[in-house]
Simulated scan of single mutants.
Amino acid sequence: MPVDNPAMIPQILLGWYDRHRRHLPWRAGPGDPAPDPYAVWMSEIMLQQTTVAAVKPYFAAFMARWPTVEALAAADDADVMTAWAGLGYYARARNLIACARTVAHDHEGRFPDDEAGLRALPGLGDYTAAAVAAIAFGRRAVVVDANVARVTARLFALETPLPAGKAELYRLADSITPDDRAGDFAQAMMDLGSGVCTTRSPQCLICPLAESCIGRRLGTPESFPLKAPKTPKPHRFGTAFWIERGDHVLLVRRPDKGLLGGMRALPSNDWATTDPALCGAPIAAVWRDLGTVPHVFTHFSLDLRVMGTTATGDTVPDGEWWPIAGIGEAGLPTLFARAASRAIAASGLIQESG
């Protein structure tokens, strides 16, 4: 069952976009000057697996503090990681720093203006390179994020489950991507997926592409895209150590490589398939169980037990003694910020162990 008038889809959708587009701080409107490639790149990195609502305040803060790629390239790694705290997927922040320095040092502060050049930069995969090329530089590029994938799969009633159908999905998106205004078209598809062709309860009655949509014609648009059955996530256990000394708590920097790399955190042991309990505790002490914080990462779930004590004597582990009253300013990733909150709420138990 072919899509009706596929050649008309860009015209119809762009007309809808010109009237109903979202107003976002990194986006240029119809007739506006081309957007700043730095702002487009920054937004696209932040938006990977993160909602627009969550990204907006971070984007504003980063652009105010580091308004150019040269400014970001000169920033201290720890400052950038701290500013990123809470946004998640911290490898993105490390790639952000590496990419900014590459652009500043190897490209005289100018982003390459085509997909091939952009893909060569740290942290830019196929999607991000296509998005920046189309949105910032007006190149014809096929941009497929989760929203675009959903709209395309429903429009064509893609029968191959994802991720196996990824190549076919890209071909279908390519078939409707126009030569002109490819960046606006990509953003129009994103807006349509975000506000109209939503994951659940798509609003077909107000969709500008409803008449062409095979999924709607079949009566089951919400069933697309088809997905292969999910395999259960593995589960791990770990322990975070809350060590008080006076009105301060011990924080450490996690290794640059690996999960939450380069971030401030509470000391913790290796996360394992069985509970490691006090294995790897930074000091020998009387520990109190302050509770357990559950957390879900992309590839596994975790139960992080929080154990607390008070440091005594002159021998204390290496790290940074941070004021407990200002723990919110330490830039802890969400997992350890929640562990800190759990420890502070249970501070009476720590005092009993002193």
Rank of each mutant, 00 (worst) to 15 (best):
D4C: 02
D4I: 14
N5W: 06
M8C: 06
I9C: 03
P10F: 01
Q11K: 04
L13Y: 03
H23P: 00
Y38D: 04
A39W: 06
T51I: 03
V55A: 14
P67N: 14
E70G: 14
L72E: 11
D76F: 15
A83P: 05
A85K: 09
Y89M: 12
V103R: 03
H105W: 07
P122V: 08
D126M: 08
A133V: 09
V144N: 01
R150K: 00
V151R: 00
T152M: 04
L158G: 03
T177Q: 02
P178E: 03
D179C: 04
G183H: 02
G183Q: 06
C204W: 13
I206V: 15
P208N: 01
T220I: 10
P234R: 01
A240M: 01
D247Q: 14
R253D: 13
R254S: 11
D256S: 10
D256H: 11
K257N: 10
L259D: 06
A265H: 07
S268G: 04
N269V: 15
W287E: 03
L290T: 09
L290V: 09
G291I: 06
P294T: 11
F300R: 04
S301L: 05
M307F: 09
E329Q: 15
L332F: 13
T334M: 09
F336Y: 15
S341Q: 07
S353I: 09
